[in-house]
């Protein structure tokens, strides 16, 4: 199975980066760093829920918990 970290990272790159030269890592602050607006988090959450056939409660998908790839993966792993 593809590493979950890379699944999330690739999704964020595809979905949110407009400029191909921009680089992000597992630790790059996404929401507080202005890459993902807290609005658009919805699609990331839904994508993960569909992909891993899980359901993440809204309160777990807080902007803080979804602020970088590492912490997103931590949240998702609780539910798979």
């Amino acid at each position: 199975m593809e590493d979950m970290k890379d699944v999330v990272l690739n999704y964020v790159i595809e979905e949110y980066l407009e400029d191909e030269d921009e680089e992000i890592t597992y630790d790059t602050p996404l929401i507080s760093g202005g890459i993902v607006d807290s609005f658009s988090m919805v699609s990331l959450k839904r994508f993960l829920e569909n992909k891993y056939k899980i359901s993440i409660p809204d309160e777990k998908a807080s902007p803080e918990a979804f602020d970088n790839v590492n912490s997103i993966v931590k949240v998702v792993k609780e539910y798979v």
């Binding site: 407009e18 609005f39 994508f47």
Partner: peptide, 20 residues
């Protein structure tokens, strides 16, 4: 619920319509 698609990007819009 709210989601966005990349500016005028119809492929991206379609993927969002499928997702939701």
């Amino acid at each position: 619920m709210h989601d966005t698609f990349k500016h005028s990007n119809m492929k991206h819009l379609e993927s969002k319509l499928q997702l939701h």
